[in-house]
């Protein structure tokens, strides 16, 4: 592992999460879509502000992780803050089926249709 000094910032992850490493409650899937419900305010933590700006249009958790350059688990913590504050909403993936269950044929038809249009 080579340190990539040029790319680094002095912020350690625990200073971004305030020392939290996990969040209680239902976890957000990688493809849960996040939508902002309000605009950032002055003095807001920059990551929160940036999420609010990015999520003016729906954005998946994994996309936020890539945008912010932060691990998905840290992004989940930040998103929980925003969800608790009521400034974002989450659109969870609908087919929360168990590993064994299969998506419905109706859903798959839509997927096929979409793919064929590519």
């Amino acid at each position: 592992m080579k340190p990539r000094l040029d790319d680094e910032d002095p912020d350690r992850l625990y200073t971004i999460t305030g020392g939290r490493s996990r969040v209680g409650g239902g976890s957000l899937d990688l493809v849960t879509l996040i939508v902002s419900e309000s605009e950032p305010t002055a003095g807001m933590q920059s990551e929160h502000a940036r999420i609010l700006r990015t999520c003016r249009r729906p954005t998946a958790v994994v996309e936020l992780s890539a945008d912010l350059g932060l691990p998905v688990s840290v992004v989940r913590i930040l998103l929980c803050d925003l969800l608790d504050a009521g400034v974002v909403t989450a659109r969870h993936p609908r087919p929360t089926h168990s590993p064994d269950a299969l998506p419905s044929p109706e859903l798959l038809k839509r997927v096929l249709l979409g793919l064929r249009k590519l």
Binding site: M1, L5, E8
Partner: peptide, 24 residues
């Protein structure tokens, strides 16, 4: 610190807390 940051990226919540402690 650079190594820890990389590990923090690669590991999920189970390990993250411990890594953050070491980081600190």
């Amino acid at each position: 610190l650079a190594d820890l940051r990389e590990m923090e990226d690669r590991h999920g919540e189970d390990v993250l807390g411990d890594l953050l402690k070491l980081d600190h």
